[in-house]
Nucleic acid binder design. Structure first.
Lengths: 113, 113
DNA sequence: GGATTAGTTAGCCATATGGCTCATCTTGAT
DNA sequence: ATCAAGATGAGCCATATGGCTAACTAATCC
């Protein structure tokens, strides 16, 4: 599960989430992305690399500019995991509800409303 | 957005994701949870604490046993963020499609610049 | 009461993270 | 040909993370 580790780790930093949010609106160069975050470029580059290693972002160099963009399926893996767990959790709550209902019915067995 | 930071950080560790997965099936004590992960209890407790600080898990002590359970809205915040970003990203791709179509049409009409 | 069980606290350690600066390299503009 | 711009590489630093052991507390069991 090292991939999920990397994906969620990427998402755990607000700078990187901001980069994702920005890239959701369209491709941008490292410089463009860096501008909004008052941070030295080498520091910022580390974030870009983290995003690339988690396969959320791809980039390629055109001239001296590196253009970055989101991968089409960037967030679906993370969403998939969350959705699966939530489903399990909710189906359990449903069963629990009906279990509680059953209990309630049994409880009412001798005093029907 | 320190809260999102903490949530995604919690999710970035496979031990903690396993705990969430287990808790999705129902409450469990710290001991129950720890058993499957060959790890010293104090190490494991740190994970539990991380999960509590990110408000994914709540626990309360009954006797000498600490019972843990998922919070009902545990994963919705993370899902919400992911869903918002994906929506932006996809609506942009839609616009881009029509933009490319438009370009193609113009290209056919006038030639290039 | 004494032993056992389930956590908890404290502290150690190696590595990872996230920031910085300074030096370098490549490309684009003049 | 030179210079500026956009990255990139190397390396420093403080703090955080994730593991451990050992010692302690508090509930339960015999």
């Amino acid at each position: 599960m090292a991939h999920l580790d990397r994906i969620f780790h990427s998402l755990s930093d607000s700078t990187r989430r901001a980069v994702i949010a920005q890239l959701a609106h369209g491709p941008a160069s490292v410089g463009d992305l860096a501008q909004r975050h008052s941070m030295a470029l080498p520091s910022f580059m580390k974030h870009v690399r983290v995003l690339e290693e988690s396969e959320i972002v791809v980039s390629r160099k055109m001239g001296r500019v590196r253009m970055c963009q989101l991968r089409p399926d960037a967030l679906t893996i993370a969403q998939g995991w969350l959705e699966r767990e939530r489903r399990i959790w909710e189906s359990r709550l449903d069963r629990l509800d009906s279990f509680v209902e059953t209990l309630a019915e049994q409880d009412n067995a001798h005093g029907h409303e």
